[in-house]
């Protein structure tokens, strides 16, 4: 099968690539574009390790075809930090020890980013609900929830 041409925007940068139609966006990001920060834990939409933001919506990259990315705006973990500074969410994850092995972390940071853009002041319950698509096997979620609360507070403070 001939490859298809895709023109998309990834982390604000126009990006072109060729892909087979059956390839997932996750596969294209990781294998063709070298953006391996987005992880694969299941390939079936059940773990959230592959979370990216497509046109402002949190999405599992394993459930999107690479060809569907044509003309879309895609944000991945590689685009979260500023050149000289971590994003407050990243900073709070570190300071709250919200990662142990860290494989779930990129997905959780993307999910948190999407949450706080929609709801700057989430309750513990709202955070747990929103993050239920992101499995973490190491932490028991306690420190993740606290990190998200702290990041939300910091971001609100920054805006005030």
């Amino acid at each position: 099968m001939t490859k298809q041409h895709v023109l998309t925007t990834i982390n604000g940068e126009q990006t072109e690539f060729l892909c087979e139609p059956q390839q997932s966006l996750l596969g294209a990001l990781r294998e063709d574009l070298g953006l391996t920060g987005t992880k694969e834990g299941c390939g079936t939409g059940d773990c959230g390790a592959c979370s990216v933001i497509v046109n402002g919506r949190l999405t599992c990259a394993c459930l999107v075809l690479a060809v569907e990315a044509d003309g879309q705006q895609i944000e991945t973990i590689e685009g979260v930090a500023e050149p000289q500074a971590l994003h407050p969410i990243q900073q709070q994850f570190l300071e709250h020890a919200a990662l142990q092995c860290g494989i779930c972390t990129p997905g959780l940071i993307m999910a948190t980013k999407a949450l706080l853009e929609k709801n700057p002041d989430p309750s513990e319950h709202e955070i747990r609900y929103w993050l239920s698509g992101n499995l973490c096997r190491c932490t028991g979620y306690d420190k993740i929830v606290r990190a998200v609360l702290a990041a939300a507070a910091q971001l609100r403070g920054a805006e005030a």
């Binding site: 919506r57 999405t59 459930l63």
Partner: peptide
């Protein structure tokens, strides 16, 4: 239906 991620699709 599904997680927040799945809801977006």
């Amino acid at each position: 239906i599904g997680s927040v991620q799945v809801q977006g699709r």
